[in-house]
Design a binder for these strands. Structure first.
Length: 599
RNA sequence: GCACCCAUAGCUCAGCUGGAUAGAGCGUCGCCCUCCGAAGGCGAAGGCCUCAGGUUCGAAUCCUGAUGGGUGCGCCA
């Protein structure tokens, strides 16, 4: 069990609704069940763990529903309807409950009083962005590792999705009250940075006027031309006609430094800022890999052995070899994994183990890795390693991001390094901007493939969720500007203190009810590590606002601005402003700027 | 051969870790601006949740198997 850090709990205010209505009502149900036990209506010793209070799918079923009667029927040895009837009577006596009725197989549907929803609006205005923060349950120290692309070139579209997802997830967890570290693991210890160095060397020679040829095993990308030039500017002719041994290490360091600058810039253009870049190279020659493996060895999880050949796809040059293996099968993997090559050098897996060991020793309560879907094969071994190193104490969740399919005008956009149509993160951000890039990348679950059409994402129509949500926010801002122009005070403190009892129309309450879902949404999304839920929620909230706005066409009473009636205007604008506050908070999690007006 | 991910409306996808009659957008059809808040809104049609079993009060959701698609599989990181 992970130890929970002390959390500053916001004291529950008695007699008032707190921020998460669903936990409030859940509390009421549990409390009522307890009373029923005390008076003998229910047997003692029942577990209430599975009692849930949830929004029903069909709004006709009320505002909230609880399954308590059905869950408890069997352990209590009573009929669900009997329990439900008794519980419903108790629930109905609470002032917040307008109606409690038993339905279906034993659900209790609750309809809440309008004042409850008016309080929600008031709470949003009072708490601001803090409205969605759970009062408790946060406070864990979490490490989110994402991007972690090799420092050998610019980031491409695939990295972009991982970057956006990881960043939004980190934001989400932070919003939910966790202490989050955003981290990038630099693969600067392996052979690929030697390849980078050799490629830069060729560009360096080129900068000196020599003609060069890029053989297999070098990177021919144009982006290294300036690196070669910069190297020339720095060292002059020092490396010309010198053996590789003289320059490899120097150029490697020079080149990876340059690449990291490039990557940092790319990420920055996307609005991603890492807390820490962790160098793989820093693990070598410092005994840290050895230490991590010694830890595994102490647990009897390292041994010398021979692996079976993979079936079905036998490599041509396969022959049995004795290797140093990690007993990953003891922690859920399918086969044991080599940590040393036959020449005695570490495999890539060894520093990965050491890196995760480092994260564990830094005291994180939970680790999250964001990988591309093509790295799915490493999930089990990485989890096995973390499980072994932490004795199962630190959970590691690995999120895989699926491919991004690019389109231009509905036609697939083929990427080819050779044809020069290789699409980089910078290409995407330069063309459509960071806000659109981020939002669109989050309109799909991480494990579902994503279609990205350069033209469609910039379209200003309902079909485009980015626009649709931004527009809702801009509309509210527009109302605030107009009210201000009409001499109505609309700062948050004034709106919070306004008389909201006029907010009773079904179209208005629908919006308030959607606002009430926000804390619960945050909780669910954070628990499941699913930031895309925020994007979908914002779309729904925007939709409710647009619907209400349009009702104003037919029903002037529903307009936010009530001609000549400041008090009425303030109560309605309070609702609109509350929507803007939540949209703004949600967009903040996604890393998208809420705009004041559309252009 | 094995592992992981996926399969929901004609299309693109949600579905809150087991709840009631499975939702949204696009597309199709119908409606709402002489003026008042149309970059929007309202309504209709559209489903054997790939298939077959199982678990239980209850399954798109969990388990097993099948089919179809994606990814990966000892000295590449």
């Amino acid at each position: 069990m992970t130890p929970l850090r002390p959390v500053l709990n916001r004291p529950q205010r008695k007699g008032r609704t707190s921020m998460n209505l669903f936990t409030d009502m859940h509390g009421l149900v549990i409390e009522s069940l307890g009373r029923m036990q005390a008076e003998g209506t229910l047997p003692k010793g029942l577990a209430f763990d599975n009692v849930a209070v949830e929004p029903p799918r069909d709004p006709a079923h009320g505002d909230m529903a609880t399954n308590a009667a059905m869950v408890l029927a069997r352990p209590a040895g009573q009929k669900p309807r009997d329990i439900a009837d008794a519980l419903a009577v108790r629930l109905a006596s609470d002032p917040r409950v307008a109606l409690a009725e038993v339905a279906g197989p034993g659900f209790i549907n609750l309809r809440l009083a309008p004042t409850v929803w008016q309080d929600v609006v008031r709470n949003v205005l009072g708490e601001g962005a803090g409205f969605g923060r759970p009062a408790a349950g946060g406070g864990r120290k979490v490490n989110v590792e994402y991007v972690s692309a090799n420092p050998t070139g610019p980031l491409h579209v695939g990295h972009t999705r991982g970057a956006v997802f990881g960043d939004a997830l980190a934001n989400l967890l932070e919003y939910a009250g966790h202490d989050v570290t955003r981290e990038y693991y630099i693969n600067d210890g392996g052979a690929q940075v030697d390849v980078l160095a050799r490629s830069v060397y060729l560009r360096y020679l080129e900068a000196h006027g020599q003609s060069v040829e890029f053989e297999d095993g070098t990177y021919p990308g144009d982006y290294l031309i300036e690196v070669g030039q910069a190297l020339k500017d720095e060292v002059g002719e020092a490396y010309i006609d010198k053996p590789e041994a003289d320059w490899l290490a120097d150029i490697r360091e020079f080149a990876t430094g340059r690449m990291l600058d490039l990557i940092r810039d790319d990420l920055s253009a996307l609005g991603v800022t890492m807390d820490r870049f962790f160098s793989e190279k820093s693990l070598y020659g410092t005994g840290r890999i050895e230490a991590a493996l010694a830890t595994l060895s102490d647990k009897g999880l390292i041994y010398e052995g021979v692996l079976d050949p993979p079936k079905g796809k036998m490599p041509e040059d396969w022959e049995p070899r004795v290797q140093t293996l990690f007993r990953a099968t003891a922690h859920g993997d399918d086969v044991d994994r080599p940590v040393k090559k036959s020449d005695g050098a570490w495999t890539y897996f060894a520093p990965d183990i050491a890196y995760h060991y480092d994260k564990i020793t830094r005291g994180y309560d939970a680790l999250i890795d964001v990988f591309g879907a093509d790295h799915g094969g490493y999930v089990k071994r990485m989890k096995a390693a973390v499980s072994a190193l932490s004795d199962g104490r630190v959970p590691l969740d690995i999120k895989l991001t699926q491919l991004v399919k690019l389109y231009k005008n509905c036609a697939p956009f083929k990427m080819s390094k050779r044809a020069g149509t290789f699409v980089t993160l910078r290409d995407v951000v330069d063309q459509v901007g960071p806000d659109v890039t981020r939002f669109v990348m989050l309109t799909r679950k991480n494990d579902a493939p994503l279609d990205f059409d350069f033209d469609k994402v910039l379209e200003q129509s309902r079909e485009n969720p980015v626009f649709y949500v931004q527009y809702a926010h801009a509309r509210v801002c527009s109302v605030l500007r107009k009210a201000d122009g009409a001499g109505i005070t609309v700062d948050d403190a004034t709106l919070e203190a306004a008389d909201l009892s006029g907010l009773v129309h079904e179209a208005e309450l629908t919006v308030a009810k959607k606002l009430a879902e926000w804390p619960r949404l945050v909780e669910v999304a954070a628990r499941g590590h699913e930031p895309h839920r925020v994007a979908f929620y914002l779309y729904e909230l925007a939709s409710d606002l647009h619907a209400l706005w349009n009702r104003g066409n037919d029903m002037p009473d529903l307009r936010f601005l009530q001609e000549g009636n400041a008090a009425a205007s303030q109560s309605k604008i309070a609702l609109a402003r509350a929507v803007a506050v939540v949209i703004s908070a949600g967009l903040g999690i996604l890393g998208v700027t809420p705009v004041q007006e559309m252009r």
